[in-house]
Amino acid sequence: MADEGDVLTDLNQQSNGNGADHGPVAGIITQYVKDLSVENPKAPESFGWNEAPELDVQFNIAARQVSDEVQEVELKVSATAKTQHGTAYIVELSYCGLVGMRNMPEEQKHAFVYAEAPRFLFPFARRVIADATRDAGFAPLVLDPIDFTAIYQQQLLARQQEGGMTPPAGGAA
Rank of each mutant, 00 (worst) to 15 (best):
A43V: 11
T9I: 14
W49S: 11
G86H: 03
L55M: 03
Q160E: 00
F122L: 08
A63D: 12
A52F: 02
A81K: 00
L121I: 02
P145Y: 00
L121H: 00
Y95T: 03
N18R: 12
E54D: 10
N18H: 12
N16R: 11
N50L: 14
N40W: 01
R119L: 12
A2T: 04
E92A: 10
Q84G: 13
N18M: 13
A52D: 10
G27R: 11
E51I: 08
A20E: 09
G27K: 08
D56M: 03
L55R: 02
N50D: 14
V73L: 11
A117M: 05
T149F: 13
V70S: 09
R102F: 13
N60H: 06
T87C: 09
Q71E: 06
Q108R: 13
D35L: 05
E45G: 09
R102L: 06
S78D: 15
V66E: 14
N103T: 01
E92I: 09
E106G: 09
V142Y: 13
A158D: 04
Q160V: 04
A125P: 10
A111M: 08
I90K: 02
Q58E: 12
D35N: 06
V38L: 03
V77P: 00
Q13M: 07
N12T: 15
N40M: 05
D56K: 04
M101D: 07
G163P: 07
S15G: 04
F59H: 12
P145G: 12
A130G: 06
N16C: 15
H110W: 03
L157K: 13
D144S: 08
V99Q: 00
D135N: 14
V91E: 00
Y114F: 11
L121K: 06
A117W: 01
Y89C: 05
L55E: 10
Q58L: 12
F148L: 12
Y32N: 03
V33A: 01
E116T: 14
E116S: 04
I90P: 02
E106W: 07
A63L: 11
Q160W: 04
D135C: 14
N50Y: 12
D35Y: 07
D56L: 04
E74H: 06
L93Y: 09
D147P: 00
G100Y: 09
G164H: 03
Q71G: 02
T149N: 13
V99P: 04
D3L: 09
R64M: 12
A63R: 13
Y152D: 10
R126D: 02
G137C: 13
M1G: 12
A20D: 15
G5K: 07
G27I: 02
A43K: 10
L75D: 00
E51H: 08
T87P: 00
Q160T: 03
D3T: 04
A79P: 02
V7N: 05
Q154S: 07
L93N: 02
Q14T: 07
P53E: 14
A173D: 11
V73S: 01
Y95G: 01
Q65A: 11
D35W: 06
L36F: 05
A136I: 09
A125T: 04
G137T: 05
G27F: 14
I61F: 02
